[in-house]
């Protein structure tokens, strides 16, 4: 599925990965997230070699160091907006008082300062994706993975969400990977990499 891929990413760096369907974008993402293991080669996140970690250790790595944004948002419908955003903090054991403050600050940063008590069904698609971005960044991860984050949004909403994602990733000193097949979306990243059968190449 995937051959000869090499990628180095530093803190504060935000790259887009493009590619036709079937070139292995999802596989690449799974490998970086530690959801799948490579047949050959090494992947290291923050100095930790993923191959050396067992499933539970990978889970801990994911909850502490990574943030995710999905095409279909995947905001949990039975938790309020604030509770959704608080989830990663709860997982890493942030004390309740500090947690509330950070959630509130994060929601304000994505422009949803007033929506904390709302249930997800009361929000529009663009707002839901903002919640997802807040959730992906609230615990200050090292790496944010965004998979077609605007695939379900109309163009105007999409560009606002992309701008927010970029601003938040870079502003918090995280590294970001944006997987998309939209050139417009990819254009918001620092650099664009194209995945093909031959591997990962910088877009000319």
């Amino acid at each position: 599925m995937l051959a000869d891929v090499e990628l180095d990413l530093s803190a504060g760096e935000y790259v887009a990965i493009m590619g036709e369907s079937g070139t292995g974008k999802s596989t690449l993402l799974n490998l970086v997230a530690g959801l799948d293991r490579p047949d050959a080669g090494t992947i290291a996140v923050g100095g930790a070699d993923l191959a050396a970690l067992d499933d539970d250790a990978l889970t801990v790595l994911r909850r502490e160091r990574m943030g995710f944004v999905f095409q279909a948002f995947h905001v949990l419908p039975y938790l309020t907006v604030a509770q959704n955003v608080a989830l990663p903090l709860a997982l890493v054991g942030t004390p309740a008082g500090e947690r509330d403050a950070r959630v509130q600050a994060m929601l304000a940063a994505v422009g949803l300062g007033e929506r904390g008590p709302s249930m997800p069904r009361e929000l529009s698609g663009g707002e839901l994706q903002r919640v997802a971005i807040a959730r992906a960044l609230v615990h200050s991860p090292m790496l944010v993975l965004a998979d077609e984050p605007t695939g379900n949004l109309d163009p105007d909403t999409a560009s606002a969400v992309l701008a927010l994602l970029r601003e938040q990733v870079k502003g918090r000193g995280a590294a970001g990977i944006l997987v998309t097949h939209s050139l417009a979306a990819a254009g918001t990243a620092d650099r664009i990499l194209v995945l093909s059968r031959g591997g990962l190449r910088e877009r000319a």
């Binding site: 889970t59 990574m66 995710f68 995947h74």
Partner: peptide, 14 residues
């Protein structure tokens, strides 16, 4: 399924 998968990715153990 999607909620549970989301939670797994967010860092819930199996």
């Amino acid at each position: 399924a999607t909620e549970l998968a989301t939670l797994r990715v967010l860092g819930f153990t199996r």
